[in-house]
Design a protein around this nucleic acid. Structure first.
Length: 750
RNA sequence: UGGGGUAUCGCCAAGCGGUAAGGCAUUGGUUUUUGGUACCAAUAUUCGGGGGUUCGAAUCCCUCUACCCCAUCCA
């Protein structure tokens, strides 16, 4: 499927790495912690990791990140494996476990200790917290950080042997207690837990922390790209620190982060999901309203539809909330082409067709004309039938297409009928209709000439089967639900005696059907039996009628008021610079401001002025281009100096090169440190300012793009830039842009 | 308040100095024995705000704003 030309940033990175030869082989991993049931957010991660591995002919491992024995359980391991398989992916080799690496991890920890890069701390939990400081205050180091290597080795060995109680000691990396990034304040590497582990049993009583175990597990498995969610961005520095410190730098993995999936009307956190289950608000982890994969599966979503959904939502770093409608679209889109159409009546209203006698079997296609699938079933028909109560209205609203006392309707696959009498009970409730049919209106051989507005579903009384239908709707009413308190009372409606045409039950053509005009339904994999068929509503059909009435106008764009914050005032010295720049040198206040506030820029600027007296152009270049280089470099690290910048500007002033070329020369200069003249000469970047040459190129461009010329002449002035751009492209940027502008303007006018 | 991120249509999302992709949703219309599907069309003079650089800025520079993450012996 070559759907989108555009690639996500992860794939872009992988391609770059492959091309640059940093890796010959892509290895990713899906590393869940087995402490909860996988949900659709996991599906996104699975699709990314396995998807990338597939796309680049690499592999993806499935690894259980089981470093915390107090919260993890084997039942989740099974659920996770199921989820990956169900979605149709295959992991490389057997399932991996972080616990498989405990021995090696222990050795790496020992290595760090011996390097003096890790120490056993014996502070209490509260003390550790206190010592860590806060986001604004630096922390302070534990007195135990000064223990000798020998002492640390011995203590860590004894921790392993189980000589200490939980919490008595921990192993920490020795990094920086005053680091601005909190993660770097001597992160914990190991803690004591006298808890039996689901796989290693009682072999270990010390367990590695995520930060320590994850990067090393990735390294051990030969992972090339370690992809995780945004909240681990801050942890990346430790990931790198551990690998680098241990010298594991060859073919090492790097971490990349993407935004986790959020969907409106849905909760995704393990905690909230667990709460729903524990409080009995749903029937279990596989309740069809749950966003768990087990839930979607039971509801009737296909794995392909979930994968397709994941493909459509994209991968990026912006926190976002995807509209459920997008998920619903994915399953509808698939089922539209796959599901047989069948007739079911949820809320029956009986009709007696007074002028019909006997019975017949009508042949009806399972699929509409526009679905390229074949298959038919027989529909019993007689004078006693049921239609949907909603499909009759005695006092219809405007634009009601269905049956009314004066409006006939077609019974799908059968005849056109019209209402003759409405029978009500004493309370006024309609209990039955009497109708007449048109004998010559039979479906497929209609000679009645009657135009009906719609065709409705129906079932024949004697042959219809009773089924249970579970009508599921979104679990939460609130678009961004907090939790169980927002549960929608309409999320489940059970209809115990809906009526369905017999073929569905007798033939069992499929597990998923479209109940015509109602939606897509799925035979419940657990509760369904021949005696008591149960169908789950997967998703309704798209509805366009009735929507108009309630469609709330999206509130007229209220302009968001932007508050302008206070700018920190300039120091006296800065102010002096500013004054000098604006008054003496004639710089505009913005450039003057930028220069004045940054010491490095102002001193650099002063140096350029000594080389070449052209204050304004030099200021512009320093405040823009040089400032960019200085963002992640120091003055000393710059490959070029004031002299080169001055020379560059002089070439622009002398009209040897255009400002566009100057930009490229500058970039080259910053990279190689070469003198600007040399760069221009080597690259042959001399400006083309010969009007004859330019004009011929312009004529060519114009001749090649008659459509755009027409559009331009019709008023699309934006296209001006297009023509200029084309000409510049044709000359590899060497054309004098000012002149091109002028000439293009003139040419297009004529 | 320190650090790390993010901001392009109602919702996702491309875009990397030269005509603002695409999908979902919405709105018209055409086909239709599903108020479905399919098809056609509409929908950002503008990219969080303000300045600046440039012939030309969503893209480069400055600045402000909003939101998310980090102070578990969780992952």
């Amino acid at each position: 499927m070559a759907m989108n030309e555009s690639k996500d940033f992860l794939r872009t990175k992988v391609e770059e790495d492959l091309k640059a030869g940093r890796y010959t082989h892509v290895v990713t991993r899906f590393p869940p912690e087995p402490n909860g049931y996988p949900h659709i957010g996991h599906a996104k991660s699975i699709c990314i990791n396995f998807g990338i591995a597939n796309d680049y002919h690499g592999e993806c491992n499935l690894r259980m990140d089981d470093t915390n024995p107090t919260t993890e359980d084997t039942q989740y391991v099974e659920a996770l494996k199921d989820a990956v398989e169900w979605l149709g992916f295959e992991w490389e080799g057997g399932v991996r476990y972080t616990s498989d690496y405990f021995e090696r991890l222990y050795e790496y920890a020992m290595q760090l200790i011996k390097m003096g890069k890790a120490y056993v701390d014996s502070l209490s939990e509260e003390e550790i917290r206190e010592y860590r400081g806060s986001v604004t205050l630096p922390g302070k180091r534990s007195k135990y950080a000064t223990r000798s290597i020998e002492e640390n080795v011995e203590l860590f060995e004894r921790m392993k042997k189980g000589e200490f109680a939980d919490g008595q000691h921990v192993l920490r990396a020795k990094i920086d207690m005053s680091a601005a990034n909190m993660q770097l304040r001597d992160p914990l590497l190991y803690r004591i837990r006298h808890t039996s582990h689901q796989r290693t049993g009682d072999t270990w009583c010390i367990y590695p922390m995520y930060d320590f175990a994850h990067c090393l597990s990735d390294y051990i498995e030969g992972i090339s790209h370690s992809i995780c969610t945004l909240e681990f961005e801050n942890n990346r520095v430790i990931y790198d620190w551990i690998l680098d410190t241990l010298g594991l730098t060859q073919q090492r993995p790097y971490q990349y982060e993407f935004a986790r999936l959020n969907i409106n009307y849905t909760v995704m956190s393990k905690r909230k999901l667990l709460e729903l289950v524990n409080k009995g608000l749903v029937s279990g982890w596989d309740d069809p309203r749950m966003p768990t994969l087990a839930g979607y599966r039971r509801r009737g979503y296909t794995p392909q539809s979930i994968v397709h959904f994941c493909d459509t939502i994209g991968i990026a770093k912006a926190n976002s909330i995807v509209d459920v409608a997008q998920l619903e679209f994915a399953i509808r889109d698939e089922l539209n082409l796959a599901a047989p159409r069948v007739m079911c009546v949820l809320n029956p209203l009986k009709i007696t067709i007074e002028n019909y006698e006997g019975s017949e079997l009508l042949e009806a296609s399972y699929y509409p004309e526009d679905v390229p699938k074949e298959g038919v079933r027989l529909l019993p028909f007689s004078k006693e039938i049921f239609i949907e109560r909603e499909d009759f209205d005695e006092n219809p609203p405007k634009d009601y297409y269905r049956l009314t006392p004066t409006q006939p309707v077609r019974l799908k696959h059968a005849y056109i009928i019209e209402c003759k009498e409405v029978i009500k009970d004493t309370t006024g409730k309609i209990i039955q209709l009497k109708a007449h049919y048109y004998p010559n209106s039979k479906s497929g051989e209609d000679r009645s000439g009657i135009k009906v507005k719609s065709a409705i579903q129906w079932v024949e009384e004697k042959s219809a089967k009773e089924i249970e239908v579970r009508l599921y709707d979104r679990l939460f009413e609130d678009e961004s639900p907090k939790g169980s308190e927002d549960i929608s009372p309409y999320s489940l409606k059970i209809i115990r005696n809906a009526l369905i045409e017999p073929a569905v039950i007798d033939t069992k053509l499929d597990e998923r059907f479209q109940f015509e005009r109602l939606g897509y339904f799925y035979a419940d994999p657990i509760d369904y039996s021949d005696k008591h068929p149960v169908f789950n509503k997967i998703v309704g059909l798209k509805e366009s009628w009735g929507k108009k009435a309630q469609s709330t106008q999206p509130n007229k764009m209220e302009k968001k008021v932007q508050i302008d914050g206070k700018v920190v005032p300039m120091s006296q010295a800065q102010h002096a610079f500013f004054e000098h720049y604006t008054h003496t040198l004639g710089l505009n206040s913005e450039i003057a401001n930028t220069l004045a506030r940054d010491e490095r820029l102002s001193s650099f600027y002063a140096q350029t002025l000594e080389e070449f007296n052209s204050p304004i152009p030099l200021a512009n270049t320093v405040a823009n281009e040089v400032a960019r280089e200085l963002k992640d470099k120091t003055l000393k690290e710059l490959k070029f100096g004031a002299k080169e910048v001055a020379q560059l500007i002089k070439m622009v002033e002398d009209e040897i090169i255009s400002s566009k070329i100057a930009k490229e020369v500058f970039e080259e200069m910053a990279k190689s440190g070469e003198a600007p003249q040399t760069i221009v000469q080597i690259k042959g970047w001399m400006q083309i300012s010969n009007p004859q040459i330019l004009q011929s190129i312009i004529d060519e461009v114009i001749a090649k793009n008659p459509d755009n010329v027409a559009k331009y002449k019709a008023g699309n002035t934006k296209l001006f830039g297009f023509f200029v751009g084309e000409v510049l492209k044709a000359t590899s940027g060497k054309a004098n842009p000012k002149m091109v502008n002028e000439l293009v303007g003139k040419t297009l006018q004529s």
